[in-house]
């Protein structure tokens, strides 16, 4: 509730805007300043990075802990849980990607668990952590990293570079360029049609480039859009006073589905893109 959120009297608009504001730091005139960084391309969203890295570390500690104690004979409960997740990822990857790669499955695991944990932050009531932050002097706190387009874009760009890397590794530079220029319309290689070839190649290149660039863009915007919308609805529900309790519960239950689904979709599409990149078609 706006009035109870500990930031004094706020209108609903201010309340929402406050919740959607990242804690930012940037360098202005060789001095680090907080929260006056709107539009500054060198700014860093401290809260997004903080929670993202913390959750990444949570993933690493849980799974590394299980991996260190992993034994074939007597798996502990934690190991059993971790193995279920890994087995799930492994079978999902194997269904799609048939080559041999020591990267894709761990990549998929990291993406799935990490994105899942980041999405899961959405289920913490929207005021708790910002209030706690306010109490220790942090003016803004956006706790769900995946509602920050920088975070989802950062991940999808890493995936994008992996796509480029795999394409070139498996098809060679020539194969990759050919893929960009010789589809979907095969340019004529001899005769009078040769005159039209450069145009066809240019057309193909534009089409294929858009298709290629759309991959990371759609990947990140899908996750960002879903999580941002979900977070916004949580914020709106939080404005409703006492009625937020049943509504929040209902939306949270529904959101559990979205949280898991979006993490899975992000992972699965990454695997599919990398599969496409490493297979001839």
């Amino acid at each position: 509730m706006a009035g109870e959120s500990g930031h004094g009297a706020q209108t609903s608009g201010e309340y929402i805007a406050h919740h959607l504001q990242n804690l930012q730091v940037c360098k202005v005139d060789s001095e680090w300043v907080w929260n006056h960084c709107a539009g500054n391309p060198m700014a860093i969203n401290v809260d997004s990075m903080f929670f993202s890295v913390i959750l990444g570390l949570v993933f690493v500690f849980i799974f590394r802990g299980a991996a260190k104690k992993a034994s074939a004979e007597k798996p502990g409960k934690m190991q059993a849980f971790v193995e279920i997740v890994i087995d799930f990822i492994d079978s999902s990857v194997k269904d799609t990607f048939h080559g041999k790669s020591s990267l894709i499955a761990p990549l998929a695991l990291t993406i799935f668990v990490w994105v899942f944990l980041m999405n899961l932050m959405d289920l913490i009531p929207v005021d708790w952590l910002p209030m706690l932050g306010g109490a220790i002097g942090v003016p803004y706190l956006k706790v769900v990293p995946t509602t920050d387009v920088n975070i989802t874009f950062g991940m999808s760009i890493a995936v994008f570079f992996l796509i480029l890397f795999y394409s070139i590794k498996n098809k060679g530079i020539g194969g990759f360029i050919g893929e960009l220029t010789l589809h979907p319309i095969a340019p004529p290689m001899k005769g009078v049609g040769l005159i039209a070839a450069p145009f066809i190649i240019a057309f193909n290149f534009i089409l294929e480039s858009v298709a290629l660039l759309a991959k990371p863009l759609s990947l990140s915007l899908r996750l960002f859009g879903n999580m941002f919308a979900g977070e916004l609805i949580f914020i709106l529900i939080a404005l409703l006073g006492v009625w937020q309790l049943p509504l929040h519960f209902g939306w949270a239950v529904f959101h559990v589905l979205i949280v898991t689904l979006q993490a899975f979709i992000f992972m699965m599409l990454t695997v599919v893109y990398l599969t496409l990149a490493s297979e001839e078609h």
């Binding site: 391309p41 860093i44 993202s52 990549l107 993406i111 991940m155």
Partner: peptide, 25 residues
């Protein structure tokens, strides 16, 4: 707005993926 967080997240992701690939999987 897009800012350096993007690069930071990319680096963090590559580090975590590398760690997972080496020590977890």
């Amino acid at each position: 707005d897009i800012n350096m967080t993007l690069i930071g997240q990319s680096i963090a992701m590559l580090v975590f993926v590398w760690f997972c690939m080496k020590f977890i999987w």
